[in-house]
């Protein structure tokens, strides 16, 4: 929120430990409200959205301190309004951008730099998208997975064909009371199995004083990390869940995967904490050889 920066921690850090490096300062062009981040393992780059500057920034993955981005997607031709989240599709060499205010998903060439028009945009009433909170691509099945929150429509996981463009209906939507999704944030796909991992935050964000305080001290319904099959559709309960008092989660907002170590990570916006879970059942050995 009010403290913009990218913090980098050793995976095995545990307890009250500081970051091994921080990307920060005016030269980085970062702003608050970076509600997404992606690591491109092929090109060794980091991609982040800059909500207040209407930009998508690409850094060297080893960036530190006040290091400038190596590429910036920003300008009138980008049609970027307020980028909320990002991901990288390394197979198809594209950056995927999701917007909350813009209610859309845009695709840019991965190497785009400057005032570049998007290759495709999914936007419009048929899409069902409202405030887009997370985006990811299943390169095996050629699908786009989007998490979208709506006050008047559907809050859930929307699945499109990756090459969809314009005002198109999703192939499927995972939403409803059985899904447990009330509020939703970051999504990731494990393409080997076709599993969708979702940070189901489930916070109450009324932002209206008369409705009472949506205080972090009074979480209405605690969130969870939910796992769905990419072929699920409708009001489907998750096939796997991480939640509960022992999990330490209150409002998990982010999710990241490390199949090689059988680990799932989340970040919690209430406790200002990052949590690591060992989940071998989510990453079977025949699909994921252990990381050397």
């Amino acid at each position: 929120m009010s403290v913009p920066r990218i913090l980098v921690f050793a995976r095995l850090a545990n307890g009250n430990e500081g970051p091994v490096r921080v990307i920060e300062g005016q030269g980085t062009k970062l702003s608050r409200t970076m509600h997404g981040i992606a690591y491109d393992s092929v090109h060794d780059e980091i991609v982040v959205p800059v909500h207040l500057g209407g930009a998508v920034l690409v850094f060297r993955a080893s960036a530190t301190g006040e290091e400038a981005p190596i590429r910036i997607i920003q300008g009138p031709h980008t049609h970027i309004l307020r980028p909320e989240t990002v991901n990288v599709d390394v197979k198809n060499n594209e950056i995927v951008v999701g917007e909350d205010v813009g209610q859309d998903v845009m695709f840019f060439p991965r190497e785009a730099n400057g005032d570049v028009a998007p290759l495709r945009t999914i936007r419009g009433p048929k899409t069902g998208l409202d405030e887009v909170r997370g985006v990811t691509v299943d390169p095996v099945r050629n699908l786009l997975v989007v998490s979208s929150r709506s006050g008047k429509g559907t809050t859930g996981v929307f699945i499109f064909n990756r090459t969809d463009n314009g005002d198109v209906a999703p192939r499927s939507v995972i939403a409803g009371p059985k899904s447990g999704i009330i509020r939703i944030r970051q999504v990731e796909v494990e393409p080997e199995q076709g599993k969708i991992f979702v940070a189901v935050k489930n916070n109450v964000e009324s932002y209206r004083f008369a409705d009472g305080s949506p205080s972090p001290w009074n979480p209405d319904k605690p969130g969870f990390i939910g796992v769905w099959d990419i072929n699920d559709n409708g009001d489907v309960p998750p096939r796997g869940v991480i939640k509960g008092p022992a999990s330490e989660m209150v409002w998990p907002a982010g999710v990241a995967l490390n199949p090689g170590d059988r680990e799932v990570y989340t970040i919690d916006s209430v406790s200002n904490g990052m949590y690591s879970y060992y989940m071998p059942e989510f990453f079977p050995a025949e699909k994921h050889p252990k990381r050397q």
Partner: peptide, 26 residues
């Protein structure tokens, strides 16, 4: 000398498989 993680209402994270690091934007 107490370490400072520096989180401020974080909403996303990513895993850097090359460096075995976790990336968290505020």
């Amino acid at each position: 000398g107490t370490p400072t993680p520096g989180f401020g209402n974080p909403m996303a994270l990513a895993y850097d498989s090359k460096r075995d690091e976790l990336l968290v934007p505020n």
